[in-house]
Simulated assay, not measured.
Amino acid sequence: MITDPVTALGDLFSREVDQRTASFVRPSDTDGPDWGVYDGDAFLGMLYAEQGPSGLHWRVNGSSERHRDLHDAVRALRRPASWPRERAEVQHWARRLLTDKSLAAVDIETTGLHEAWAVQIAATDRDGRVLFAEYVNPLAEIEPAAAAVHKIDPERVVAAPTFGELLPALTEALHGRTCVTYNMPFDRKVLDRELTRHHGGAHTPAVRWLANCTWVDAMEPYAVWKGLWSAKHGRYRAQKLGGPHDAVEDCRTLLSRIEQMAAVPSPARP
């Protein structure tokens, strides 16, 4: 978040945003807290600093869109001209998804970010009703960084069932459903590893089990919906889901984000 007092920014300043310099120039006909933003010689648009009850926001180019983070405001100015069309496509995607009566939101809390095992698995239906919610004994160490995020320590899961013990109930809850997750490749990989371990290292049963669900990722559509363009990567910047890192509540948060995308409200609110 920008820490410079607005009064100290001056008429000219610059910021490195995604490894590309953005230059800020205050127009000569004003001494107000507004700046034209340039990417090299290209004019991106205007940003207006506004101080409100909740702190400093940056309003984008005469619109109602506001960002707390100056870098995010620059990313909004950098979004490609195709964004309205791409965002409309996300809206249609979200609306179609929400009409799927088999829809299940799935979330998995894990032992870490690499070679991870499940410590909590949850699934809810389209209306947020719980289909499955269990802590899992991972039979592996929980990394301190992961425990700091989801607050699941070894004592919480030491007496919990193993994945194999939970597999029949998980199968009943998910098979035949459209399963939407946030960062689907990661969650699906966790299930793949759990299933492969359960079957003694055989991968084919894991592939077959996963094929009984239709897997959908909401992370990329949500990035498009937010529309914050990363000049470094040449794509929309991935966003945090914003849930409490409890598997059930994160499922409900995910459904809320999909509902937001279906309605297409303002991407950044005051």
Score class of each variant (00 low, 15 high):
residue 205 P to M: 08
residue 82 S to P: 03
residue 60 V to I: 14
residue 89 E to F: 01
residue 171 T to E: 15
residue 150 H to R: 13
residue 184 M to F: 07
residue 130 V to C: 13
residue 210 L to V: 09
residue 53 P to F: 05
residue 181 T to V: 11
residue 30 T to N: 03
residue 5 P to N: 11
residue 107 D to Y: 09
residue 83 W to C: 03
residue 265 P to D: 12
residue 259 E to K: 15
residue 254 L to G: 00
residue 253 T to A: 12
residue 143 E to M: 15
residue 110 T to E: 07
residue 26 R to S: 01
residue 56 L to I: 09
residue 182 Y to C: 10
residue 83 W to R: 00
residue 121 I to A: 00
residue 157 V to F: 03
residue 96 R to L: 11
residue 45 G to L: 02
residue 134 E to F: 08
residue 256 S to Y: 11
residue 119 V to S: 08
residue 94 A to H: 02
residue 248 V to H: 04
residue 103 L to K: 04
residue 33 P to V: 03
residue 90 V to S: 02
residue 215 W to S: 08
residue 186 F to P: 00
residue 160 A to I: 10
residue 2 I to M: 02
residue 128 G to R: 12
residue 1 M to I: 08
residue 23 S to F: 11
residue 20 R to V: 15
residue 189 K to N: 15
residue 192 D to Y: 10
residue 214 T to M: 00
residue 263 A to G: 06
residue 265 P to E: 13
residue 6 V to H: 02
residue 102 S to E: 11
residue 147 A to F: 09
residue 184 M to E: 15
residue 190 V to P: 08
residue 263 A to Q: 14
residue 191 L to R: 07
residue 86 E to D: 14
residue 265 P to C: 12
residue 86 E to F: 03
residue 158 V to Y: 07
residue 235 R to C: 10
residue 205 P to K: 08
residue 247 A to I: 09
residue 270 P to I: 13
residue 102 S to C: 12
residue 226 K to T: 07
residue 195 L to R: 06
residue 237 R to G: 08
residue 29 D to A: 10
residue 76 A to I: 01
residue 145 A to G: 03
residue 13 F to E: 14
residue 66 R to M: 12
residue 22 A to Q: 14
residue 189 K to Q: 15
residue 145 A to W: 08
residue 154 P to H: 12
residue 19 Q to L: 11
residue 161 P to F: 03
residue 254 L to W: 03
residue 99 T to D: 14
residue 173 A to W: 04
residue 113 L to K: 12
residue 187 D to I: 06
residue 237 R to I: 04
residue 243 G to I: 13
residue 184 M to P: 02
residue 107 D to S: 13
residue 70 L to Y: 04
residue 248 V to W: 04
residue 45 G to P: 06
residue 53 P to I: 07
residue 247 A to P: 14
residue 257 R to H: 09
residue 32 G to T: 15
residue 48 Y to W: 05
residue 116 A to I: 06
residue 127 D to K: 04
residue 81 A to G: 10
residue 260 Q to Y: 09
residue 49 A to M: 04
residue 171 T to S: 15
residue 136 V to K: 13
